[in-house]
């Protein structure tokens, strides 16, 4: 039972981060292969604020989100000036730099990482794992709600327009830079939130937890579930979270399997499992006879 709870906590935390990545990659169409950097920034920020500054999780959380937003903005600003493959490389670079900062500066505990991160309290009650799972699910629901709302705002629509055709969008009064940056900042804030939850769940973090492979696995979740769909990242996180548990003996081949899955998806179902023309959605349509269209219809 406790084992299942632990798996579920990890899945819901990763789903929050994946939802954030989906805003950047799926909604605004900007590839990011450095999402784990912002996951790490959230985790380290919360860890430092609670262990060194003596704040509680809740006292630190607004600051953590603010730090994630500011760093997302500052790192997004130069990155989003480049496109596609260059953007991919730039974001990979950001991931390695952030990881290196955590690994080599004494302030962040170098290779020893940060331990003794306190548990989360709610109304004076120390959360056990079941309760922590409840809290993670609460934040996951909140994340999904915000993502859904975002698709119905002008900012959200302008992101979709930029994803489809940046040039045409600009001729409609949409600032491509602003649309991309807003998506980037929203995405990094969710990564920061996920990072904070992660830090207080494992209670010991080190730079290796936020390396490039983590970014890849987040990207795999988004691609597998369906870029630009609301539920896709969650589905991807659930599948990729359960698979390694089921196939424990194959744990050493995890990255290989992720990459293989990523390639197969891009080749045969680029829209993901919940994408527009996916077999899942087609089957679902056949069952319900319902036809939905448009970006806000996902």
């Amino acid at each position: 039972m406790d084992y299942l709870v632990n798996v579920a906590i990890v899945i819901s935390i990763q789903a929050i981060a994946a939802c954030g990545l989906n805003v950047i990659v799926g909604y605004a169409g900007q590839i990011s292969l450095g999402h784990a950097a912002f996951f790490g920034i959230g985790a380290y920020a919360s860890a430092m604020l609670t262990t060194k500054a003596g704040l509680t999780f809740w006292g630190a959380l607004p600051l953590v989100l603010l730090i994630a937003a500011i760093l997302g903005f500052l790192l997004g600003l130069p990155s989003l000036r480049v496109k596609e493959d260059f953007l991919a490389i730039t974001t990979i670079g950001i991931n390695f730099i952030v990881e290196a900062v955590f690994l080599y500066t004494p302030f962040f505990g170098k290779a020893l990482g940060i331990g003794g991160i306190p548990r989360i309290y709610v109304f004076g009650q120390r959360l056990n794992n079941q309760m922590l799972l409840g809290l993670c699910l609460f934040f996951l629901a909140l994340t999904l709600l915000i993502c859904w709302r975002f698709t119905r705002t002008w900012a959200g629509l302008s992101c979709f327009a930029v994803r489809e055709n940046e040039t045409a969008a600009s001729s409609m009064g949409i600032s491509p830079v602003r649309a991309k940056l807003s998506a980037f900042v929203i995405g990094t804030v969710f990564a920061g939130l996920a990072g904070a939850l992660y830090a207080h769940y494992v209670r010991f973090i080190s730079a290796g937890d936020f390396g490039f492979p983590v970014s890849i696995s987040m990207m795999s979740m988004v691609v597998l579930g369906g870029m630009g769909t609301l539920w896709g990242p969650l589905l991807g996180a659930v599948i990729l979270g359960i698979l390694p548990e089921v196939f424990r003996p194959l744990i050493d081949y995890r990255m290989f399997l992720y990459s293989l899955l990523l390639l197969l998806m891009i080749r045969f179902q680029p829209g993901g499992l919940l994408g527009e023309h996916s077999f899942v959605r087609t089957a679902f349509r056949g069952l319900t006879g319902k036809e939905k269209g448009g970006v806000a219809g996902v």
Binding site: W154, L157, S158, F160, A161, E164, N165, T167, A168, A169, M172, G173, I174, E276, G293, G294, V295, A296, G297
Partner: peptide
């Protein structure tokens, strides 16, 4: 250069972006 993955109505709405 219409936005092909958006509905016709959504396309029209993009035309009043910022001027709603």
């Amino acid at each position: 250069r219409v936005f092909t993955h958006m509905t016709v109505y959504e396309n029209l709405m993009m035309g009043v972006y910022g001027l709603q």
